[in-house]
C-alpha cells in the first residue's frame, strides 16, 4: 500500500532523514518508534507532502507521490492525525469533523453517524468549539476528522502524547477496533506498550535512520535495541 524508498529530507539546511525506507501492506498496522528528535514526525510529514524529501521515492497505491501537493496525496486516500492534533480551535467539533468529509468512490463507510458511534462523547460536544475540549477529546476529534476523509491508510503521529493512562488505553482500544475493521495504518509512538499491542510490524528510528525492524515480539525480546534507542 505504502512504500517509502530511501528518502532524504531536510529542514532548511538541517539534514533530518538520512535514507529512510519502510513499507505498509494493505490491512497492516506498522509502528514507527524512537526517541524525540529521531525523525519520526519528519517521516510522516515527508509522506503526506508537507515536507517533501529531496531524494528518494514514495509510492502510495502504485502512484509515485514524492513531490505531490499535500491535498493530492490526501485525496488518494491518506488520512493524517498529526502530532499535537492540530485541530481548528475556532471551529466547532462538528465543523472540524465534517470539514474535509469525502464520500470516496461510493463506498463511504465513515459517515458522521459512524464516527459518533465510535466516539459517543463527541456527539455530546458537537457544538462546542474544539478549543474547549480536553486533551483526550481533542485526540478523538483528530482521529474522527481523518476518518471522515475515508482513507485507505491512516497516519497517526503520537496519538497517546500528553494523555492520561486511562485515555491512552481508550485510544488503544479504538485503534484495535479500526484494525479489526481492516484499516491500514502507520503509527508513530513513544509509548512502546501501546504500539506493540496493536502493530504487526515495528520499525525503530534513530538520528534519521531506521535502526531496527521486526515483529513486536522480536523488538520486545531485544533488550539492546530497547535500551539503546528507546530508553527502556
Amino acid at each position: 500500500m505504502l512504500e517509502v524508498r530511501d528518502i532524504h529530507t531536510y529542514y532548511g539546511d538541517s539534514y533530518i532523514l538520512q535514507g529512510v525506507s519502510l513499507r505498509v501492506e494493505a490491512g497492516q498496522v506498522v509502528a514507527l518508534l524512537g526517541r524525540n528528535g529521531a525523525g519520526k514526525t519528519t517521516t510522516i510529514n515527508s509522506i503526506v507532502g508537507l515536507v517533501p524529501p529531496r531524494r528518494g521515492e514514495i509510492v502510495f497505491k502504485g502512484e509515485t507521490i514524492t513531490r505531490a501537493p499535500p491535498h493530492h496525496i490526501a485525496r488518494l486516500g491518506m488520512g493524517l492525525v498529526p502530532q499535537g492534533r492540530r485541530l481548528f480551535p475556532n471551529l466547532t467539533v462538528e465543523e472540524n469533523i465534517t470539514l474535509a468529509a469525502r464520500t470516496g468512490n461510493g463506498s463511504a463507510r465513515w459517515t458522521l453517524d459512524a464516527v459518533y458511534a465510535l466516539f459517543p462523547r463527541l456527539k455530546e460536544r458537537a457544538h462546542n468549539r474544539a478549543s474547549q475540549l480536553s486533551g483526550g477529546e481533542q485526540q478523538m476529534v483528530a482521529i474522527a476528522r481523518a476518518l471522515m476523509t475515508n482513507p485507505d491508510l491512516l497516519l497517526l503521529d503520537e496519538p497517546s502524547e500528553g494523555l492520561a493512562p486511562l485515555l491512552v488505553r481508550e485510544i488503544g482500544r479504538v485503534l484495535a477496533d479500526l484494525k479489526a475493521q481492516g484499516l491500514s495504518f502507520l503509527l508513530v509512538e513513544q509509548n512502546l506498550h501501546m504500539a506493540t499491542a496493536v502493530a504487526d510490524w515495528v520499525y525503530v528510528m534513530n538520528k534519521g535512520q531506521i535502526v531496527f525492524e521486526g515483529t513486536p515480539q522480536e523488538l520486545l525480546g531485544n533488550e539492546e535495541i530497547k535500551h539503546r534507542y528507546l530508553g527502556v
Binding site: H71, A74, F88
Partner: peptide, 9 residues
C-alpha cells in the same frame, strides 16, 4: 497547512 493535509486545495 493542516487544511491542505486533509485534501483541500
Amino acid at each position: 497547512e493542516m487544511v491542505s493535509a486533509l485534501g483541500i486545495d
